[in-house]
């Protein structure tokens, strides 16, 4: 399977076979991501890391991935220090990064920004999140985490909890999980329900998601509980945010009746939706999930830059 030169914009651009291929390559990268062995397959390559929005995990794990592969990183994490401040278009910024590097990673507040970047760049573009839109590398690392923990993705009972309306990760994830034939349950406040277009996509792939606002009941038979933050920055007005913040909290009391092997995932950052007392339990998978961003992104960078795997 040839990925060299390919853009990574949306999970929907990839078939199930291609996703499996990426996940298998990510598995091979774990040992290098942990620093136990060294790989130099991207030596001489430069990655532009263009973060127009704040990020901790995505930016650091992309940069760590490139460094672990022997490549180098240029870029910015604060767009106010760039010519965008002077009114430069995104297209022109991309043209510059294109001429200075071999691949571009971009996070941007406008939806579709990565697709636009790919139009203006000759080098591969990797979408690190575009507004409330897509975040394909998060989706891939989520799939990788479920596969690593549960041995397979197919057939798991998976509960998606929280902001299902604005949360970019859950839209891509619901679609991608449906490719694998899982049992999906959506739990959210009424005003933050999964958009119909996402529900339709799941149904077209043969998955009939259940909908409930009763979290306790829904996690009884769950294998995976995927929690998301209610994202203040995506709400059109503060009033709507205030009505739903704190609607759900995952704590020890809630997990009384959960399966022993239930794993809890979260794209992070979390605020109050998961009690820190859960961190020490065997259910907590979110920190390992965050680490998995490195092997998955190492695999993607190697694939699109033609690095030997």
């Amino acid at each position: 399977m040839d990925f060299q030169g390919r853009d990574i914009i949306s999970i929907k651009d990839f078939s199930k076979n291609e996703i499996n291929f990426i996940l298998n390559n990510a598995e091979k990268m774990v040992v290098y991501a942990k620093g136990k062995k060294y790989l130099n397959n991207l030596k001489g390559h430069i990655l532009s890391s263009l973060f127009f929005e704040p990020s901790t995990r995505t930016r650091l794990s992309f940069e760590s991935s490139m460094n672990r592969l022997g490549g180098r990183v240029i870029g910015f994490a604060d767009p106010t220090a760039t010519s965008q401040k002077k009114g430069e278009s995104l297209a022109d910024t991309i043209r510059m990064a294109d001429s200075y590097s071999d691949a571009i990673v971009i996070r941007h507040p406008q939806e579709g920004a990565a697709r636009l970047a790919a139009e203006f760049a000759e080098v591969p573009v990797l979408n690190a999140g575009d507004g409330a839109g897509r975040h394909p590398t998060q989706c891939l690392l989520d799939l990788f985490t479920i596969k690593s923990e549960k041995k397979k993705i197919e057939g798991n009972n998976i509960v998606l909890l929280g902001d299902l309306k604005y949360g970019r990760t859950v839209h891509s994830l619901a679609y991608a999980l449906s490719l694998y034939g899982v049992h999906l349950t959506f739990v959210s406040p009424d005003s933050l329900k999964m958009p119909n277009e996402v529900l339709n996509e799941c149904e077209e792939l043969g998955v009939q998601p259940k909908y409930t606002s009763n979290l306790e009941k829904s996690i009884k038979n769950a294998d995976v509980l995927y929690v998301t933050r209610i994202q203040k920055e995506r709400f059109p007005d503060a009033e709507e945010y205030n009505q739903v913040v704190g609607a759900y909290k995952v704590d020890k009391n809630l997990l009384k009746n959960a399966r022993k092997n239930l794993v809890i995932m979260h794209p992070l950052p979390r605020i109050t939706e998961i009690d820190p007392e859960i961190d020490k339990t065997s259910h907590a998978l979110y920190f390992k999930q965050a680490f998995n961003g490195v092997p998955v992104r190492m695999a993607l960078l190697s694939l699109v830059l033609g690095g030997k795997l």
Binding site: G87, S89, A91, A113, R115, D130
Partner: peptide
């Protein structure tokens, strides 16, 4: 959507159904 900002691109939609017409934005989907 990035197509509504000051970028040198025209709006672009994929036609997913002709009758009744259904279209999705190429940029933000």
């Amino acid at each position: 959507c990035v197509s509504n900002y000051n970028e040198p691109v025209k709006s672009r939609f994929k036609v997913i159904n002709k009758d009744p017409p259904q279209i999705t934005c190429y940029y933000c989907e």
